[in-house]
Design a protein around this nucleic acid. Structure first.
Lengths: 108, 108
DNA sequence: GCTATAGTCAACCATATGGTTAACAATACT
DNA sequence: AGTATTGTTAACCATATGGTTGACTATAGC
């Protein structure tokens, strides 16, 4: 039973939901309990809990129990992985830009 | 009937699949027909076609028909949108690093 | 004209996803 | 002790997703 899935799968899948992205943005201002994260999104606490679960499974977020509340915090290193992939993809972008500039300067 | 979905939804959803990411990477080396994109992934052409469709719907890729083959090319600006969001999120990252450094220097 | 190639499209299938409700556990408050 | 709060878990539902097969269109090559 090999673990056959790229962590990027989980990271990007977690980022693909607007509610989850909003939660991450909210966490920029500091660690927060799940109920606070849930508040702005008209949905059950159970629903929000599942979203947090997805973020946690993707490694984008960490949970620390404090009594009955669970404090959630961002994990920047994991966000970094997604950004690194995109940055690597952008390698192409600059190459293409160079090619375009060459083409344009030859034209003039 | 309002279009209620953030383009980032589609972009990240498209990036969440390993086959699709591999196709994008393959496209870094230049525009390619769908069959070429499909080749490395043991799946039907119809399956690959659907993946390309998802990438196209997300705006990550462009299609130009040339006779019976469809030439696919990367659209960097759209990749950029995802990267920008992550970069904005990373604002938090540097703040946190600063806080950590402050804490460490006070300790010593 | 015939055949092979490149691709789409529709129908179908199994599984994943986003959400709900209801029941429960654990902690806090009075 | 009793009640309210925070959160999890399981069961369920509708829809989306990743993949297939099969029928079809259109172009290319002999």
């Amino acid at each position: 039973m090999v673990n056959n899935t790229d962590p990027l799968d989980d990271i990007f899948k977690a980022l693909a939901d607007p509610t989850r992205r909003a939660m991450l943005v909210a966490l920029k201002t500091g660690d927060q309990p799940i109920s606070t994260l849930a508040a702005p999104h008209s949905m059950t606490l159970a629903g929000a809990s599942k979203h947090v679960g997805v973020l946690e499974a993707a490694g984008l977020v960490t949970r620390e129990r404090q009594g009955r509340t669970h404090i959630i915090s961002l994990r920047a290193d994991r966000l970094r992985e997604a950004e690194d992939w995109l940055e690597a993809m952008r390698g192409f972008w600059s190459e293409r830009l160079d090619a375009l500039e060459r083409a344009l300067s030859e034209e003039s």
